[in-house]
Design a protein around this nucleic acid. Structure first.
Lengths: 232, 232
DNA sequence: CGGGTCATTGATCTAGGTCAACTGGCGTGG
DNA sequence: CCACGCCAGTTGACCTAGATCAATGACCCG
């Protein structure tokens, strides 16, 4: 990378909660062992079965983690948004990737070298702590997603997703603007696009949401919440 | 704990791959901050939603990790066998347990204090490395299980399970002796006991396995393996 | 204006779940 | 030593959540 790029990326790293505990020299060292990656929409970043090579950070664009069945259908594991890092587990295991990663939009990524990460973690306990917590939280989230697929109905999963997105977006405005194709959300919830569409429609007929393309309005949050247990 | 118990458990710890890198004083320190737990069959070790308190190691008996739906049905996440530790992720996150843990048989457990674990990890990098790898491998396994439930058919999951158990048991003898109730295995594979039973029977009718209670014989491994893609 | 991608809708199918009855040990207590 | 009850497992009849297949609509964007 160019000198100026290193500076630029180092400054971006500073803004990320996991990396803000690094000193300037530590950040620089990390950047000198990093690669900038431009991945075009539809392009594969790594394949299922590849050996791991370090930690990825998405700076801009959108990526997906997914796995493919022998019959060719794919199931989305997770959508990555800017600022998020992924494949933390790969820093600590020798196993190959269990899923592949593909750009949903043109994306700019940083790839941090495994060796360098280990060195800095060894010297900066707080940083190590952050990375560890990130991994543990990923684990927890995966358990929760697993639970969700195994014991909630399709409608329930969707309602939970909507409520979570609303929380996450900004201060319970009652409006969600999906930044992902509905098909990908459906897949993430382990549903077909068709079924997803039908259920959104049903929620709409019940007056629980107002649909307008990728914009979804929730008139009364508690009414939607109340929908969760009964399918009525 | 009694002085002699500490000695005893310390010696047991020495045999576990993750803990064998500890020095004797480190092990002793760990044991002084540990609790011996006897959990009777059917008894709950911790509940979904409880706050975490450290790492668990199963010394003898059998435990299960599972979660319960509001309708009361439970889904097994994992069966724990002697020598295995669990809830590593809980050392690094502040979130509560996403599942509960119950003794399948009378069990003897060691509960290692979180604080003490952190101290020893800080002073023994190799130990930390082991724990981290354990967590990362757990993560990987969970991804694989998740994949399996989402894209393999019931029969395929069962065949994979049988093949894996055979590998694990001892040197591909072609015979598996299930050490867990079939209902629990079924639940782990996200199946009902009934469906599980039917499919085992089908495999038997096809001559792929020989059934005798919890003893299952696989006459030709490759024939069973070949069954995986097609449902015929 | 023509061809992608994304989304909706309808008709039909099926894997696996549910409910219920039955079987076969096996440990306990009379 | 038998009878009883219990637990694990099996079997059968039926049902349903969600998938699949196929057609159509609504856009963008070049």
């Amino acid at each position: 990378m160019l000198e100026e790029e290193i500076l630029d990326f180092s400054r971006r790293l500073e803004c990320l909660p996991q990396f803000c505990v690094l000193t300037a020299p530590e950040r620089d060292l990390l950047m000198q062992n990093s690669a900038k990656l431009l991945v075009g929409k539809g392009q594969i970043l790594f394949q299922q079965g590849d050996l791991c090579s370090g930690l990825h950070i998405l700076l801009s664009g959108q990526m997906k983690l997914a796995f493919a069945s022998p019959q060719g259908q794919e199931k989305v594991l997770r959508i990555i948004r800017p600022g998020e890092s992924f494949c933390t587990a790969m820093l600590f295991t020798k196993q190959p990737y269990a899923f592949f990663s593909q750009a949903v939009r043109n994306s700019l990524l940083l790839h941090l070298n495994k060796q360098a990460m280990h060195e800095i973690m060894a010297s900066n306990p707080l940083f190590m702590q952050n990375i560890m917590q990130g991994l543990a939280d990923d684990y927890q989230q995966l358990v929760i997603d697993f639970e969700s697929v195994r014991l909630h109905s399709a409608a329930e999963r969707i309602v939970r997703y909507l409520l979570r997105e609303m929380e996450a977006s900004h201060a319970s405005s009652g409006v969600i603007n999906l930044d992902v194709a509905k098909g990908l959300i459906a897949s993430q919830l382990n549903l077909t696009q068709e079924h997803f569409s039908r259920i959104l429609n049903e929620l709409h007929r019940f007056g629980l949401i107002i649909l307008d393309g990728r914009r979804i309005e929730i008139p009364q949050v508690d009414a939607l919440q109340a929908y969760i247990p009964a399918t009525a």
